[in-house]
């Protein structure tokens, strides 16, 4: 064993297979012996810090603060947590992200398979019941008068009717005359 190896062996337990070899080196090498003793003295000097004692009542203060903080947390016992905690393996956040990504991909795949080809006739697009564009109210011709909670019914002037300005189904662009 070389002197450079000894620095990696400080604190080696006696049960370690290298222990006897280290001791043999230390018996024959004055420099390593001195370094070894310095390390041990430092360890014992620093260990004097174990006599520092926390202020009395630490346990009671900790318990009280932990109770308060846990009580302030929302109860987190949703069905998903109960289910996950019943599994024999612990899920890491990264695993959950992968599982969620796989579920989304499966869902998208399912939607793709079930969607009819683009050439086939789809259901007729219904006219929008109501849309506002600037101050123009676009309304299907036979729609009932617009009412909003707390607002008197709008009076739509028939003479103001103009052709629909937007091409999305039968409807008319109607300037609104607000009665106020």
């Amino acid at each position: 064993m070389k002197c450079s190896d000894i620095s990696k062996m400080y604190g080696l337990p006696e049960t370690d297979p290298h222990h006897a070899e280290v001791q043999a080196h230390l018996r024959g090498c004055f420099i390593c012996r001195a370094r070894w003793d310095d390390q041990d003295a430092l360890r014992r000097l620093i260990a004097l810090k174990r006599y520092e004692q926390p202020a009395p009542g630490l346990e009671a203060r900790c318990l009280a603060a932990i109770h308060l903080r846990l009580a302030a947390q929302p109860e987190n016992t949703g069905w998903w947590r109960t289910t996950l905690s019943a599994w024999p393996v612990a899920f890491q956040p990264a695993q959950l992200v992968w599982a969620a990504a796989a579920a989304v991909l499966l869902l998208l795949g399912g939607v793709y398979v079930l969607t009819p080809p683009s050439g086939s006739p789809g259901p007729a697009r219904p006219a929008p019941a109501l849309a506002l564009e600037g101050h123009i109210l676009i309304q299907p011709p036979d729609a009932p008068p617009l009412t909003l909670p707390g607002v008197p019914p709008m009076v739509v002037a028939a003479s103001n009717r103009e052709p629909a300005r937007m091409d999305y189904g039968p409807g008319a662009a109607v300037p609104v005359n607000y009665p106020y």
């Binding site: 603060a65 932990i66 846990l70 987190n76 947590r81 905690s85 393996v89 612990a90 899920f91």
Partner: peptide
Amino acid sequence: QDVFVKAFAALHRFR
């Protein structure tokens, strides 16, 4: 205190 609050919140992950 933080350590115990964190540990209790994550206890379901300790296997």
